[in-house]
Nucleic acid binder design. Structure first.
Lengths: 267, 267
DNA sequence: AAAGTTAGTTTATGCCGTAAGGAGTGGCAA
DNA sequence: TTGCCACTCCTTACGGCATAAACTAACTTT
């Protein structure tokens, strides 16, 4: 289930995102015992350690020694809180990339950092991308990627598309791994155990597999599904290699576009 | 929130997925008034029309004139039901692609069909990809893509990666549009209205935008964010072009890999 | 007719987000 | 100093969710 951006008072939520300070001059009433910041941090801690599914207002409140309802004085709703978490988390991403070694090296570093970030905060992948949250750090991320890609010398129109493709790709690749990490914890089975059990069942239930799926069977017989490094869980290794290989393909495609446009890459 | 594959009795869920008939010879008890099939179909209807968030056992039961609990005689749990929905939906995808015009045309058709499919059943994008559902139609989809890509003449190891990249890409691109379609319905605002309101707020809240995000500002000044076709909602148009452009980049990358490997493309 | 299995119901448990209203706090105007 | 009122935080409550448990009623086999 995708978590949507808050629909409440847009002005208030933008103010929260961009940290425009509230008019604070000596207000009546008891001193606030909490703050938006600690609530957001706590919520991130909950999401990091127990996953997005376990993120509830009650859970966050409990960690702070409050009830769920206490949070509503600071944050209009859960979805606004999620927006704030999202933007706060993005602040962790690196911003400076050395462009001396060429755009390709820089894009690769950027993609790897983004990938690592997503795996560090898998819940981020579950925040809807439909309508961008429009927080400052989302813009920083976009700006960073664009600054690197601009080095390719491609036109603005093409660049806009490329950024989209890159983001899509990194997100999707990370998503696969993130989910594959969650799953064994949820089922109490390792990847290997799970695959072993499942493939036994598969033979039982589809004895005509080889005839129905000849190309797949060919791929398997070529050893394409053998992992080289046994120490890393199968699926994760697979996804990481797919990520690296896919990124390379994407960058090759960008180079092709450059050549077509007659752009000369930096030495 | 990601919906996980069922964790119940693996044998039973595989049997349901692959339609191995239950031992049916004259069983005691009342005649079943429902069947797994009608339940799955109804659930898909619910998800198609009201979205994954509205898919509840109650909702499905209600459409069938039963209580939520009645479904549990046919389906072990909600997540198994989601698996079944997923595999059933995938059956809609085309399987035969003309290879005469070359792999590139075929891959493009395949990707466009998959894209259209995802937009037709957006909820599919919310089914976790962590551990493949392993239903028959997921294998069919994989087999189809592989049969086309095999035409490139690349090795099995490379192909395995390419399929992953392609799937990632199509899914992610579709996801953006799918979510952008859901959002306005949820907020009761058109994309244009929303963007207009938000960008006004953005200026209000970040008056130093141009200095903080010079590359973004440059891109904007180049007119990169002007949509050509006004009739299609902005975001959707944007995503569709990003999809087409991204796919082209990807295919260019594949061609580069072929050239490097010394493979000759078909005429 | 009795026994045993199955379909479907009702009821209940424990989660969730959040609306509503009330209690105590503390700065400010009178 | 007193009263006001915005403010924080609480309790309670509502309607939703998945699903466990126990029950009724239908039907086949013994």
């Amino acid at each position: 289930m995708v978590v949507f951006a808050g629909q409440g008072d847009a002005r208030r939520s933008m103010a929260l995102l961009w940290h425009t300070p509230r008019p604070e001059g000596g207000r009546p009433g008891p001193k606030p015992g909490l703050s938006v910041d600690v609530i957001v941090d706590t919520a991130i801690a909950v999401a990091d350690s127990e996953g997005m599914a376990a993120l509830s207002m009650r859970a966050v409140g409990e960690r702070l020694g409050r009830t769920a309802m206490a949070l509503y004085t600071y944050v209009p709703s859960k979805s606004e809180l999620v927006d704030l978490m999202y933007d706060r988390a993005l602040a962790e991403l690196p911003v400076d990339y050395e462009l001396g070694a060429g755009w390709r090296a820089a894009v690769t570093s950027w993609a790897e950092d983004a990938w690592a970030f997503y795996l560090c905060h898998p819940w981020v992948l579950q925040v809807s991308q439909a309508r961008p949250v429009l927080g400052p750090n989302e813009y920083v991320m976009l700006e960073t990627a664009l600054r690197i890609l601009r080095e390719t010398g491609l036109t603005a129109g093409v660049l806009r598309r490329l950024v989209g493709v890159l983001f899509h790709f990194v997100r999707a690749a990370a998503q696969t791994v993130a989910e594959s990490r969650q799953a064994p914890a949820a089922t109490g089975m390792s990847d290997e155990e799970w695959w072993y059990a499942r493939s036994a069942l598969l033979e039982e239930v589809a004895p005509d597999f080889a005839e129905r799926f000849p190309t797949l069977t060919w791929l398997d017989s070529e050893g394409a599904y053998q992992s080289e490094d046994e120490s890393v869980p199968y699926l994760e290794q697979e996804a990481k290699e797919t990520f690296a290989a896919g990124l390379a393909v994407l960058l090759d495609g960008i180079e092709a576009a450059m050549n077509r446009a007659g752009v000369r890459a930096l030495p």
